[in-house]
Deep mutational scan, measured.
Amino acid sequence: TTYKLILNGKTLKGETTTEAVDAETAERVFKEYAKKNGVDGEWTYDDATKTFTVTE
């Protein structure tokens, strides 16, 4: 399944996708990605669109 991440950081904005077996796995991948890019904020997930959003 393809999951999407929307980054709404103070200095970094953008989108990325990952293939994962479930939302929990995708969330771990995306949180590591955000951490590596210095983005830390509020996380939300929309199951209907398989989209995570992190907003600083």
Rank of each mutant, 00 (worst) to 15 (best):
L7F: 12
K31C: 04
T51N: 02
T16M: 12
V54Q: 01
T49D: 04
W43H: 01
V39R: 03
N37V: 15
K35M: 14
D22S: 09
A26L: 01
D46N: 10
K36S: 12
D22G: 04
D22Y: 04
G9R: 04
T1A: 14
K4L: 09
E42M: 13
T2V: 12
T16G: 05
K36T: 14
G14C: 08
K50C: 05
T44A: 11
I6F: 08
E32Y: 07
V54Y: 02
E32T: 10
Y3R: 00
L7H: 04
A20D: 03
V29M: 10
Y33K: 02
K31Y: 07
K4Q: 05
V21I: 12
Y33N: 02
L5N: 00
T51G: 02
E24T: 11
L5V: 03
E42V: 15
A20C: 06
G38F: 07
K31A: 05
L12G: 07
F30I: 01
K35G: 07
D22P: 01
K13W: 11
K31W: 08
L5W: 03
G14K: 14
K36F: 11
D47G: 10
A20R: 03
A34F: 03
G41Y: 02
R28E: 08
E24A: 12
T49G: 05
G38Q: 08
T17V: 10
D22M: 04
K13V: 09
A23P: 15
A20P: 01
E24C: 09
K4T: 13
G14L: 12
D47K: 09
K4N: 06
T44R: 09
V21C: 08
E42G: 06
F30N: 00
T49W: 04
V54K: 01
A26E: 00
V54H: 01
Y45M: 02
E56W: 12
W43R: 00
K35C: 07
K10P: 08
K13R: 13
K50M: 09
F30Q: 00
V21Y: 14
L12A: 09
E19M: 13
K50Y: 10
D22W: 03
T25D: 09
D46R: 03
K31V: 06
E27M: 14
K10N: 08
T11W: 13
V39W: 10
T51I: 06
G14T: 12
V54G: 01
R28W: 08
D47L: 08
T1D: 13
T11C: 10
R28Q: 09
L12Y: 13
E27F: 15
Y33D: 02
L7A: 03
L12T: 13
D22K: 04
Y45W: 03
K35I: 10
K31G: 04
K50H: 12
L7Y: 11
G14W: 15
G41A: 02
T51H: 02
K36A: 10
K50R: 15
T44D: 11
V29W: 12
D46Y: 05
T53P: 00
G41N: 01
E32R: 08
D22H: 04
K36R: 14
D46G: 02
E19D: 11
T1F: 12
V29F: 15
T25A: 15
T1R: 08
K10F: 15
T18S: 05
A48F: 12
T18V: 13
K10L: 13
D47F: 11
A23L: 15
T11P: 04
N8S: 09
L12D: 05
G9F: 13
T55S: 10
E42H: 13
T2I: 15
N37A: 15
A20G: 04
A34V: 09
D40G: 10
L5F: 06
F52M: 02
L5T: 01
L7D: 02
E24S: 12
N37H: 15
D47Q: 11
T11A: 14
R28T: 08
T49R: 07
G41D: 02
A20S: 07
G14N: 08
D47Y: 08
N37G: 05
A48N: 12
T49L: 08
K13Q: 11
N37F: 15
T16Q: 10
L5P: 00
E27P: 00
D46M: 04
T49C: 04
Y3I: 01
A23Y: 15
F52S: 01
K4E: 02
K10M: 13
L12I: 13
A23F: 14
T11M: 15
D47C: 05
W43T: 01
V39D: 02
T1W: 13
G9H: 07
E19N: 14
K10Q: 14
E24H: 10
D40E: 15
K36G: 07
K10I: 12
Y33C: 04
T51K: 03
E56R: 03
Y45D: 00
A34W: 03
A34K: 01
D46W: 04
A23I: 10
E24W: 09
I6D: 03
E56V: 09
F52V: 01
G14M: 14
G9V: 10
D40Q: 14
E19F: 13
G9E: 03
D22C: 04
I6C: 05
I6P: 00
N37Q: 14
V21H: 12
T25M: 13
G9S: 09
E24M: 14
E15F: 12
G9M: 11
G38M: 05
Y3W: 08
T55L: 06
N8F: 09
D40V: 14
A34I: 06
V54F: 05
G9D: 03
A23G: 05
E15D: 07
Y33W: 14
F52E: 00
G14R: 14
A20F: 04
E56P: 06
T2C: 10
L7W: 13
K50L: 09
K50F: 11
K35P: 01
A26Y: 00
V29T: 11
E32C: 06
R28S: 11
T17W: 15
T2Y: 10
V21M: 14
K10E: 06
A23Q: 12
A48E: 13
L5S: 01
G41F: 03
T11E: 11
D40H: 14
G38H: 10
T2R: 11
A23R: 15
V29H: 14
T55V: 09
D47E: 15
E27Q: 12
W43F: 04
E24D: 11
T25F: 08
T44F: 11
T53N: 05
T16C: 08
T2P: 06
T25S: 14
T17F: 13
T1Q: 13
W43V: 02
G41M: 02
E56A: 08
N8R: 13
E19I: 14
L12V: 15
A34R: 01
E15N: 07
T55I: 08
G41W: 06
T16N: 05
E24N: 09
G38V: 04
N37W: 15
T25C: 06
A20Q: 08
G14Y: 10
K4C: 05
E27K: 10
E19L: 10
E42R: 11
A34S: 05
T17D: 05
T11F: 13
E42P: 05
G14F: 14
D40N: 12
K10C: 11
K10H: 15
E27S: 09
T2E: 08
F52W: 09
D40R: 12
T53L: 05
T11Y: 13
T51A: 04
K36L: 12
K13F: 10
K50G: 04
Y33V: 05
E32I: 09
Y45F: 07
K31F: 06
E15C: 07
N37L: 15
E15V: 12
T2N: 07
A26K: 00
V29L: 12
G14Q: 13
F30P: 00
Y45G: 00
A48C: 07
E24I: 15
V29Y: 15
K31T: 05
G9C: 06
G14D: 08
L12K: 14
Y45R: 02
L5K: 00
K35V: 12
V21G: 12
K13Y: 12
A34Q: 02
L12P: 04
Y33E: 03
A48G: 08
K10W: 09
A34T: 07
A48R: 08
T55K: 06
K10G: 05
Y45A: 01
G38D: 07
